[in-house]
Structures are given as C-alpha cells and as structure tokens.
Amino acid sequence: MAQHPFNEHIPNLRRYAIALLRDRSLADDLVQDTLERGLKKLSLFKVGSDLRAWLFTIMHNLFINQIPRNKLWLQNLQADEAHSGDELAEELVTARDFMHALQLLSDEQRAIILLIGLEQLSYEQAAQVLELPVGTVMSRLARARERLRLLMSGENGPQLWRVK
C-alpha cells in the first residue's frame, strides 16, 4: 500500500512539536490535530506547492491558537531540571541552561529559531509558515538568536537558572 504523502513529514512535525512544547503528550496531540486538520483541508492544498511548509503552517496556527504554552514550558522545565540534577556532566548543564534560555524567549521567537535552526526550513518556507514577509522573518530571527545568545552568556535578562 502506498504511503500517505503526509507520512514522510510526521517525524519532523513531531520533532518540532516536542521542541516547541516540551511535552510529548501534547506534542503528539498537536501532530495528530495537524494531520487531521490537514486531511480535512486537503482540497485547499495546491498540487505542486510545498506540502511540508503547508503542514507546518497548519501546526503553527494550531499551536498559536490552542496550546496553553507558557505554563507547560515552566512545568516541563522543572522536570528537566530535576532530571539532570543527578548527572552533572558539563554537557547536560549546558543543555539545561540552553533549554531554560529557550524558554525565556517569546513563543514567536522560539518558533522561528526552531523552524529554521532545527527543522531547517528555508527562509521562504518559514515566512509561509509564520505568515510574515521574508524580511520580517530575517529580522525576527536575528533578534531571537541574539536574545538567546545573551541569555546563554548571562549578559542580559534573568539568570535564575544559574542559581544552583
């Protein structure tokens, strides 16, 4: 049986959702909702256009409209923190700082960094997903990355994750 064309994109949608939400259960729900919405709206998909970007667009809109995001991030961060407390490897501490810093970004900044840095969407695809002009994507990406860098270097913003 031929694979449904959506299927090859599921692992990437899932990776993005998990990185975005830090909660596998909600992430899988988000992916599932995305696929279901995609199936329903399939008649609106233009053959020959970018299916991957189209699916990410659906997911992004569901994410923006549906998920109680910030709370979840905070909860899941605590889980991460307690987890890595056992293992003091430098890499894990850095990863934890990174996750914390990522959490301190706005949802929009986090999404843009993940779509481009993790999912390696082109700037044009990201612009489509976020429904923004490419120029705006570029300036927002630059701002988000710089903010993340400053948070990681402790030059700016709260340093609560460095307390211990």
Binding site: N7, I10, R15, Q32, L114, G117
Partner: peptide
C-alpha cells in the same frame, strides 16, 4: 554562538526523528 544554538537544537531533539511513531499518528492517515 548562533551556530552553536543550531548544534544544541539538533543534539537535543534529533533523536525524536529515530523514534517509532506513536500508533495514533500512524493511523491518522
């Protein structure tokens, strides 16, 4: 630093791509 951010993201989340998909996601389509 920005390149390191990309590297960290892949280090943290790439393993998700290799995970078996939850059944409910496979059955959707």
């Amino acid at each position: 630093a920005y390149q390191e951010q990309n590297r960290m993201l892949h280090g943290l989340f790439d393993h998700v791509l290799d995970e078996p998909l939850p059944e409910e996601l496979i059955t959707v389509t």
